[in-house]
Write a protein that binds this DNA or RNA. Structure first.
Lengths: 217, 217, 217, 217
DNA sequence: GATGAATGAGGATTCATTCAT
DNA sequence: AATGAATGAATCCTCATTCAT
């Protein structure tokens, strides 16, 4: 974006964003109950009191963090509804989702915190963000042919993907123990993405890319 | 109170077990930080002070809950190392694991709480309990033939199963939203088990039971 | 005391005495408020509850410790009233007091704890034990001739001796820092006793033993 | 509120000082273990929680009290190293030490509390504050002529003065019982100071002031 | 916008004590 | 005489929040 030289950009919300960044990290790590407002403030070189100039309270801050984190994630997943589970589209969505979460794994962790505690935020969270995507995906699957999944299983397939994608980043410490390598390292993420693509092929009844060529011949 | 001779019930540790039960439920629901010792005590009709006659502190209680929960879960999974991923064995293990966790979903939630926070307990937890199972499973997979997975991917397969089985119960509230039904209802658990079995067949390169017959013909 | 061979002495109060010993040590070290009943009990391999079979409560135990400690100390000082501050008598009393307190320094510490806090026990303590001795000592001093002290100062002289004798053992950690050696080591105690004797001579106007002979010539 | 220009009173730390004052009094009276943070706070018309805005904790408050109390006391004693035990200097130091402690007897009591419990603070306390004074005093005594004390006794002399001066105020309740009058009343303090001066003369081999004139004649 | 100070509520833990066994 | 269990009352401290400056 071009900016006129000297033009003072409306960048004041710099503090607000730094708070959000820090809060996201701490909430993701320690959960809502385990995170002290004072700790968030201190990590931004603020007093707890000052933080209240930017957010109405701990709950409001948490909501803001959630909101800010969900939106881009949903943008990434959105065109899933456009292309469905067709081979290349799924590959692409998978890649983009993994790439996005690799950069912002905190969102996945926040969702999982909510899911674990069944806290008040979960239902609005899913109703607002997840259900729309879900509907799209389900619609696509229904239209697919040759899928080994009955319609009543479609929702389970979706849930599975959520667990395998979001879960991978959410419980990264556990995954790390199982894998024996840092799950967030770019190379590891790449391998995991490939793994999931292979899984997708096995699951959707499609054939692996190289074989596909022969098949279509 | 009359007691039948020979019917010596060694049931004194009743209180201790009731505390453990309650603590397990609350820790699973609210996490460690979100659970007040007083709440646990109150749920067992005790004062917080009384609870300290049974456990040295919150941490000790938490550790005891974890320990008590992990052992039976591991017993269930243990013979996985004996039979590996062969069709019927995997089907059986899957069924038993799902059945066990359906009755004690809290263990899965506790593990996920730990995994999310990467708290101090996670590493001993996995090193003590999970790694042994993991090794057995990996060994079995290595011996398998016809598997579509390279050896480098075996650990990812294991991690996948952990996510799909433990994760199903751990983030039950989220799964419920996605599935549109109570994930812990016996019927739902059964369907999910069948779903996972089907997935297993697709994944291991095996064919579904009914088709198998025809194939081998 | 002679005991018939084989006669079973009434030694049951063994536990009671062990409690008193331990309590004395802990009270002396940490003071009344700083000492937990449980700690005393644990040091005697008892439960706190068991301790209540021997003493009515913390206060009662403390009183018993005080009582038990004061009596022999007073016995030691008692004949001060018989011989007063005359040279040899003072030397002897000094020696005996120092020797006694060196073996049971806790009594001095207990007295000082009371004196510091001005706690409820102090007044009965002094009225019962210390005042009688004090009267005797004052009477002796009054009868002395050649003393450099006015009668108005006699009480200060007594207070001074209390501070120098009891205080030496009471604040042993501080004295140790000042002296650069362990104040309770027998050799150190001996040197301190000699020091106090010398001080006594200087103070009472008397001359050192060897010089005395010449003086009186 | 109008403030005269130039009369800028930097008195904001009022609350902190009031806390320190109160804490000093209570710690001196009841000792560390016997003093409740809540009581200190209440005595300053604060909540316990508010107190934590000024001090990090009970220990930190205690340390601050000690630090604040020791400094002026040491200032008083400091020039002891300059003039040593020569008659007039000792008289002067004695007078100033007694006067200071008469106004702030709590410091003496705090030191004695530490000395009695041999608590963690004692060693740093003596090493930082007392030892320097001690060294100066010892040096002076060594240079003195006509002293009846051997060099190995010098430390005992110092310890004696500490006991007689600090101890007088520290165990004031006990001294009061022995003296039969309030040890902190100005007149009593004066008499005690004179008593100690007389003692000093007897001890250092010097002659009383009036006799001195004749002697030097 | 930032902060020092204040606070009610709560949170973990200790303590002295009781009581049935 | 000993103890496991229970408890009310404290104890130290944290937390989210407010408010005047």
């Amino acid at each position: 974006m071009f900016v006129y030289p000297g033009a003072s950009l409306p960048q004041p919300p710099v503090t607000r964003d730094r708070i959000l960044d820090t809060a996201e990290a701490l909430f993701a790590e320690r959960g809502f109950a385990g995170t002290a407002v004072r700790d968030i403030a201190a990590a931004v070189d603020l007093t707890a009191a000052s933080l209240y100039n930017h957010f109405a309270g701990k709950e409001a801050l948490y909501a803001a963090v959630l909101e800010r984190g969900m939106r881009p994630l949903m943008d990434v997943l959105e065109d899933l509804s456009g292309h469905g589970h067709e081979r290349t589209a799924l590959d692409a969505t998978l890649g983009r989702a993994m790439a996005h979460l690799a950069r912002r794994p905190n969102v996945a962790r926040l969702i999982y915190h909510e899911a674990l505690t069944g806290a008040a935020h979960l239902v609005p969270l899913t109703r607002t963000w997840i259900q729309p995507i879900l509907s799209g995906a389900l619609g696509e699957m229904k239209r697919e042919v040759g899928s080994p999944w009955a319609e009543e299983e479609h929702r389970r397939v979706v849930a599975m993907w959520v667990q395998l994608i979001a879960g991978y980043f959410a419980v990264a410490p556990l995954v790390g123990e199982l894998l024996g390598e840092d799950p967030l390292a770019p190379a590891t993420v790449d391998r995991q993405t490939e793994f999931l693509r292979k899984l997708a092929r096995l699951i959707t009844g499609a054939h692996p890319p190289d074989e596909t060529k022969e098949e279509t011949r």
